[in-house]
Design a protein around this nucleic acid. Structure first.
Lengths: 248, 248
DNA sequence: GAGTGGTCTAGACCACACA
DNA sequence: GTGTGGTCTAGACCACTCT
């Protein structure tokens, strides 16, 4: 294989070489688990400098196709099927309805985990601060969710200051300089509990959608838990996964 | 700032420089939207070659912190909060319950979109092949879902061959050489429809969780749609999002 | 010790953006 | 035109792995 493509198309040599190597891998000329020719050999084959060869290999590495190691060589990885990713810039994207709805606080309290209607991490004796609220469409009285927000007592101050649209985890991140490293989310159907049902205009026991979210900081501590109950037909959880190449 | 760190710790110079620059950005010494010093200036400041400076800048670029452009310079991007990604190697990970459950086919048919209980893409007159099935825990008769799978007629042959655990989209990918490029998923609460309720041991109108998935190939065509109804408490949809650095 | 990729230098020419 | 980053060469030394 030559580099005619380079001279014809004026594309960078390392890109052309990367594509040739990629095609070789796809075609099985370099099989899974085998080593690519060494950088020195590739330099000779393609008549380019080592830097150029290394740029080409870097491209393949970024695609997750090969793994280069000093002392060993550049190994062809298992045919990468890619992976499906859902990517969010802000966790707020998860509840895009936030911007179109407002919160009305119903109550605030301090309680022990055992008293909450749901399982909170840290054991039944652990104290949490909680606010109960409903979310309704802004400028209307259509209620889309009944919500509980639990936060660790040391962050509880933010709960006294929330207004219609603030996202509690963002307030905590900002004021206490922590970062949400992980979010766990669980969605399930539920017969609406009486307390929630009354607030959102459902019959007790009617179908409803429950969403439980745990916000976890970079030390692994769950610092906030939210629990929402949505009326059916006024809320759905939509997701799109896109196939993307890249390292696993 | 010197490169003492390099000589003390024996770490690559470009890494040390990258960290110094990153700290400078964090500290606001290079503000959002501003240009970094040119590569030539950085070479002089740190007393290294241009290659080394470029490796450092490449590191920052991979982190999504800066954007280098020929003719302009290297611009500091808006403080990158990272993004939260949910990553799946196989869409099958989405229904992890697949491996622990088996499917029992109830019926097969050919129908027009208008006859389906849900909205299928492509207009009401479009023909689809469908199978109706229930999923139950393997080796038990506990039913966890009532399911409909719709596929384009030209792929319908696979529906005649599905056994207890095959994933239809994987069969189609394999046999017809297509690739699932995107998956759209919608989850909502639903009063169980009578047909489904009867099959999974629910009262009609009881709370249930509905999951609608559209499988889309790389030409943008929806080639499969699945619709599932789950009893509450026998199914929940769990997700974990992890904060990851990187370009947006 | 021989060979690998990882790091680094000192040059060079180019395409591009902007004044 | 001047300066930017993008590409490329021809060297060099190193840490690492395997024998």
């Amino acid at each position: 294989m030559s580099l005619r493509a380079h001279f014809e198309t004026r594309r960078p040599r390392y890109q052309v070489i990367a594509e040739v190597l990629e095609a070789d891998i796809e075609a099985g000329r370099f099989g899974e688990g085998e080593l690519l020719p060494s950088e020195a050999q590739l330099c000779a084959s393609y008549g380019v400098s080592r830097h150029t060869v290394r740029e080409a290999i870097r491209t393949l590495s970024d695609l997750g196709l090969v793994d280069a190691r000093a002392g060993i060589g550049t190994r062809v990885l298992a045919r990468n099927p890619g992976s499906y990713v859902q990517r969010l810039k802000e966790i707020a994207d998860l509840h895009d309805y936030v911007s179109e709805t407002s919160r009305r606080v119903i109550s605030r309290s301090v309680l022990h985990a055992a008293e909450a209607g749901i399982a909170l991490p840290g054991g039944p004796g652990k104290a949490w601060r909680m606010v109960e609220a409903v979310r309704h469409v802004s400028g209307s009285d259509v209620v889309v969710a009944w919500t509980q927000v639990f936060v660790l007592p040391r962050y509880g101050a933010v709960l006294d200051r929330i207004t219609g649209n603030d996202l509690v985890y963002l307030l905590i991140e900002r004021e206490y300089g922590i970062r949400t490293a992980r979010l766990r989310q669980s969605i399930y159907a539920l017969a609406a509990p009486a307390t929630a049902a009354a607030q959102i205009g459902l019959e007790p026991g009617a179908p409803s959608l429950a969403v439980l979210r745990e916000y976890i900081d970079d030390k692994g501590e769950v610092f906030e838990v939210t629990f929402s109950i949505h009326p059916p037909d006024r809320y759905r959880y939509d997701t799109e996964f896109v196939l993307s190449p890249g390292k696993p």
